[in-house]
Design a protein around this nucleic acid. Structure first.
Lengths: 235, 235
DNA sequence: ACAAAAGTGTTCTCCATACACCCATGT
DNA sequence: ACATGGGTGTATGGAGAACACTTTTGT
């Protein structure tokens, strides 16, 4: 086995958990995927999707695993938010928990999954009291999401491969909880030259139909390499 | 003792450490406080100031304690940056480490302290190879510092109570590693109406002397409460 | 006199904002 | 015909960026 010396024996050890703030978006607005906790303590109360890190993985891997276990989803955008460590934050034991936020295309998460994983999409503005410090985690995650959304194209992770400009605008309005002028928004987005009009139309929300666009990831990569610093939104 | 049930017994536990990225600023530029590691493994190599969290404290408290133990300093601006958890990041044992950055007025950290604590101020651009993932921690901390400095008055934590406008400008130039136009900078800073000219002058860096200003914290608090969103720097 | 740093205003450009009407289509 | 959401252009204001000379004083 391990013949290396092992140091730091004199220091305490702690359980380390990850909790996932899972954002989704549809025509109703920005939502979080929540569950009723399935084990003690606090069984049955509203909770984020969480789990414990184990010895064979790092935090990113633990977060991915937990997300997969709780939702079946893989390869989604995830990012560490911050670590919560209040001594009594979890009444079950001393646990240090690392919050991650995830952005998923809500249409990939089909209705059967919500049954299978006993998960519920809840509008951000209707989030109930959650266990422990989970409401604070949500708050920090939202701040981070807004910050990212101002200068990164993270928003597209919440939409399908193709999307309409009205949908994209609604997304930004939901993220920043504000109204945006339609003409200014479209001008800004199209002038960045990072959206490709597929020529196809989407008719589910209007008779006239709205053009479907996709995000030009290749071009975005190139431009950022060249020092281009885009601005997707400003207060 | 504790008669509460204890949950999660089946999960692994981990050592949890904090590492502090301590920023200081003087006429030479932006610096970090580093030390040669005092214990195994990697004794004698360059390292951030770090230590282990214990059961009676949370991470913020651990970071404060470590900062005090390593530098003697208290009540400085500190902020959690992010958590590092690669399985073999520390060859001594499995350790999850939480990076904190601290901003201190370098003049409060007198020369005797650097001897007493065997700490060295090193210019950011001369940072050597550090142990483990500490260079990455520094990188993340700098990104966070820049982000904060754009819309928060964190910079003032790196200066004394009173400071000259040229010194403030040099600070922003050091943080963002760029040149700033003197007139535009002064115009912006004074137009925010958050700096108070004390009427006194500082002569150490010029014959003419430069006015000493102080930051109007009270006014800043009031204005932010009213929704004012200042911009202290923009790319 | 001169070197060295402090201090001072104006112009231009660009980007964010505000704002109102026509278009396409299903009913 | 009309209701619904999609799509379009222009004018204005404010903030950032560029830019050069005078002031003070110690040597």
């Amino acid at each position: 086995m391990n013949t290396q010396p092992t140091y730091y024996q004199e220091y305490s050890s702690f359980k380390v958990a990850v909790d996932c703030i899972i954002f989704g978006f549809d025509e109703e607005g920005l939502k979080l995927l929540l569950q009723k906790r399935k084990f003690e303590p606090c069984r049955g109360e509203w909770s984020l999707m969480g789990g414990f890190m184990n010895s064979e993985e790092n935090l990113d891997q633990a977060a991915e695993r937990v997300l997969k276990e709780c939702t079946g989803l893989e390869k989604v955008y995830m990012e560490q938010v911050m670590t919560f460590s209040e001594i009594s934050r979890d009444p079950g034991n001393r646990v240090v928990s690392v919050a991650y936020f995830a952005l998923i295309d809500i249409r990939h998460y089909v209705k059967e999954s919500t049954d299978k994983y006993q998960a519920v999409w809840i509008l951000l503005k209707d989030i109930p009291k959650l266990i422990f410090d989970h409401n604070e985690m949500v708050h920090k995650a939202l701040i981070r999401l807004r910050q990212r959304a101002t200068n990164c194209p993270v928003g597209f992770n919440l939409l399908s491969e193709t999307f309409t400009l009205p949908a994209l605008q609604q997304l930004y309005e939901a993220i920043f909880d504000c109204k945006i002028d339609k003409r200014n928004f479209r001008k800004k987005m199209t002038s960045m030259d990072l959206l490709i009009n597929t020529g196809k139309k989407e008719y589910s929300s209007s008779k006239k139909g709205a053009f479907l666009y996709c995000f030009d990831e290749k071009k975005y990569e190139e431009m950022t390499k060249k020092g281009y610093n885009p601005n997707f939104f400003s207060l």
